[in-house]
Amino acid sequence: MKILVCISKAPDTTSKIAFTEGNTKFDENGVQYIVNPYDEWYALVRALEIKEAQGGNVTIITVGTAADEAVIRKALAIGADDAVRIDADPKDAYYAAVQIAEYAKNNQFDLVLTGKETINYNGSQVGGMIAEALDTPFISVATKLDVNGSTMTLEREIAGGIEVVETGLPVVISCAKGMAEQRIPNMRGIMAARTKPLQVVAPVSVEDLTSFVSYTMPDAKSACKMIDPSNMDELVELLHNEAKVI
């Protein structure tokens, strides 16, 4: 089975979030990039498990600049066979999705896995867009994936519940918690990652559908009002009369 895993970089979860250039750009100063947790913990690890069980090939793909190769090597250290970097600095999910779909189409992948969303833009857009561009089914927010020949059996989250579905190949799947367990790369993996093939591919020409114009930070919270633990009637009264939420 040929598996393509879409990887995005994301700022480390403890990063300070700030903006520069008149609040039009994310301030990367001092920010450590990690592999987006959903892509790494669930999509990539499940792809590796499938390969280990039945053979095949796992390719990582990212749309990014040369600076993103450190993040690609981190993902390779966990165990993928090779990586592809589409050489562009994407500003828009559609732009990235079209690049990935183009590569997937030209290289005939059976299974395309993404994380359920990135932890910086939280758009949940790329997976569905790739599926539409490839005209394949899209199984979103999958928490379980069993492969039986060319039949995929999946559990996915739907509004207020869980659905068990069956589909064939090719298919695009966005992966969430439950799909696999996080793997910590070992020394051998990290060494091997340095020499694994990383192919750089020129982007196709695509117009962005959207752009982020500016950013703002939420208003600072006013001081916390402390309440005596023995006086819960007071809390209820405040929630009703002051906060007006009950």
Binding site: I17, I119, N120, N122, F212, V213, Y215, T216, M217, P218
Partner: peptide, 11 residues
Amino acid sequence: VFSGKAFGAVK
């Protein structure tokens, strides 16, 4: 954006 740590204005 940033999981609720900030807001973005999208065009």
